[in-house]
Nucleic acid binder design. Structure first.
Length: 587
DNA sequence: GCCGTTTTCGGCCCGACTGTTTTCAGTCG
């Protein structure tokens, strides 16, 4: 938890980032700029207060934070500002950093705009573009000016910073569509989704696909000719970028089969991971690129599989979900990479709805869908009475549903159907069912669906109370975020994690495409805090059981192993766990 | 500014593509 008055990690990171951006515009040594950026990324990815660490002199324990940056962070914590940044702002207008972030513009051209036109921010740039003055600046021309005009107009329409990023679920579908189109157009080609989609990032900016065949150019032609392609943005011998009719940028990189592993590794990223990997290679006298690995004698070795790329550097294959430069190379070097949970580890689904509440299919249909996916158990977890909008069940209907579940269990022995509920956590922290009813369920997920505007302390208290209830097995979608609608509620997640860890309550990684809640960073904190996860599809139809794959990606990004996830366990084990907790509470 | 199988100085990933040049700088991933 952040301590009162201290700058948050995001605030610290934003300042370091800004210093780096302005230094770059000023023309500072490139690696000094990189050092600030790396430090900013490190601070953002750190789960505990870096400002507090700096005050204690421990921030230098973090990679990428040295004595100089620790002093600056401490200065920020103590005085609210950094003198070096204030001085830098005197020399370089802060607005140039925003200009430098525009597509096609970087530090050099931002500086040129300021020097030549006196443009010091995006608004002034828009005026200069409108007046046709930009095309005459050295290094610029009519094409760049037109591109800027279009970009600034879009920006004025939708000023949100996250504009253009889409939920992972949508990106996965689009990426697989593109990949399928390439396979169809070029039979025999190897095609794979790469980039942030493959890494399982919860939101995706653009889609990367790699393809290999003896005639790489034909693959690029195929990409240009896909039905989804609206226009070609750029095209070379090795890569093509297209805009789709859906307004999503797709990049296809093509190469030869012998170097497919090199290309896939390169295009999967992340950029920061690749930089680290290549630095490690340089220390071993090797040079890594998408074409292969060059030795000291200049001979280039190619690798058809990604395993070979990592093996050539003395490393085990690092799962794509971990390739974010957050310590994965150190783990790999030490042989300590976790064996991450995978879809085949899941034995059951503990969060599913039927037409008894807001699901679209009957209990038998849902059960058959779960069986068809090889599950050993399925929890029928319809909503509770207060969620009237979703057809929440009252006591009478719960009892009748239990009879229906009993009938289902009686007529089949290939899957266990569980009496479950997604019970509302009410505004005062109480659960929507009385204890005697809750005691009769096999599995209870408690979720907040309303009252998100409560003060953070009250919201936190509700979740903590739910997590501490002996009747509750899991907290559903703990922060309530809905991408594009509602951000994570400002709950004190550490307090919720601590309560869940104490009580043995699971925290859900909800796999609904717009939820993905907990997100991967939060799930990582939950595991560090000793809490167990459960991956829930929150399925409202049989087909929606497959959404669980999104949750698996999120859990993998959090570093979760199978044993960290409740629904990788056999039902008997989960049942005993619930019985033990209830007995310990005297319930 | 950071950091060490080149360890307290001298390094710091690598290549593709575009637009503006007239041989390449800047940007991007």
């Amino acid at each position: 938890m952040a301590e009162a008055g201290l700058p948050t990690n995001r605030e610290v990171a934003d300042r370091l980032q800004l210093i780096g951006d302005l230094l770059e515009i000023e023309g500072a040594v490139r690696h000094r700029v990189l050092a600030y950026r790396r430090a900013a990324a490190r601070v953002r990815a750190t789960p505990t207060s870096v400002a507090a660490m700096a005050l204690e002199g421990r921030a230098t324990d973090l990679p990428d934070i040295g004595a100089t940056l620790q002093a600056k962070i401490r200065e920020l914590a103590e005085t609210g500002d950094i003198a070096a940044l204030a001085a830098l702002r005197e020399r370089v207008p802060e607005g140039l950093a925003a200009i430098a972030r525009l597509d096609g513009i970087g530090p050099k051209r931002a500086l040129a705009l300021w020097r030549e036109l006196g443009v010091a921010g995006p608004e002034a740039l828009a005026e200069a573009v409108a007046a046709g003055r930009v095309r005459d600046v050295p290094g610029f021309g009519p094409a760049t000016e037109a591109a800027l005009a279009a970009q600034l107009a879009r920006r004025a329409e939708r000023p949100e910073p996250d504009e253009g990023r889409m939920p992972l679920g949508r990106a996965l579908d689009l990426a697989e569509e593109v990949a399928a189109g390439l396979r169809a157009a070029a039979p025999g080609a190897r095609v794979a989704v790469a980039g942030s989609v493959r890494r399982g990032r919860e939101t995706v900016g653009d889609i990367d696909v790699v393809a290999a065949a003896d005639d790489p150019a034909a693959l690029l032609d195929a990409a240009a000719a896909l039905p989804a392609t609206e226009r070609v943005l750029s095209r070379g011998e090795a890569r093509i970028a297209v805009m789709t009719h859906a307004g999503v940028r797709v990049e296809v990189a093509a190469g030869r089969p012998a170097a497919f592993g090199n290309l896939l590794q390169h295009a999967t990223g992340s950029a920061a991971h690749n930089v680290r990997l290549r630095e490690l290679a340089v220390r071993r006298g090797l040079s890594v690129s998408e074409h292969g690995i060059a030795g000291p004698d200049g001979a280039v070795a190619t690798h058809a599989e990604e395993e070979g790329v990592y093996a050539a550097l003395g490393l085990p294959l690092i799962p794509p979900e971990l390739r974010e430069d957050q310590g994965e190379l150190e783990l790999a070097l030490a042989g300590d990479l976790p064996r991450l949970v995978q879809p085949s580890d899941l034995r059951g689904e503990l969060h599913a709805h039927t037409d008894w509440s807001d699901g679209t299919e009957s209990i038998p249909v849902m059960v058959e869908a779960a069986r068809a996916r090889g599950y050993e158990y399925l929890a029928i977890s319809d909503h509770s009475r207060s969620l009237a909008m979703a057809g929440g069940l009252d006591r009478d209907r719960v009892l009748r549903q239990w009879e229906a579940i009993e009938r289902e269990n009686a007529r089949r022995d290939d899957i266990v159907v569980l009496r479950a509920t997604e019970v509302d956590v009410l505004a005062d922290g109480a659960l929507d069912f009385p204890d005697d009813l809750l005691a009769g369920f096999d599995w209870v997920t408690a979720s907040v669906h309303s009252g998100f505007s409560q003060p953070p302390e009250r919201l936190t208290a509700r979740l903590v109370a739910a997590a501490e209830s002996p009747f509750v097995d899991a907290i559903g979608h703990p922060t309530g975020r809905m991408m594009g609608r509602r951000d994570h509620a400002p709950v004190d997640l550490e307090a919720v994690i601590a309560a869940a860890a104490r009580a043995g309550t699971c925290l859900e990684v909800n796999a609904q495409p717009r939820r993905l809640d907990l997100d991967s960073a939060m799930a990582r904190r939950a595991l560090a805090g000793g809490a167990r996860l459960v991956i829930g599809a929150d399925a409202h139809s049989g087909a929606a059981l497959d959404l669980v794959r999104l949750g698996v990606l999120v859990a993998r990004r959090a570093g979760a192993r199978a044993e960290d996830v409740a629904n990788t366990r056999p039902w008997d084990e989960l049942r005993e766990g619930r019985a033990t907790r209830l007995a310990a509470a005297g319930a």
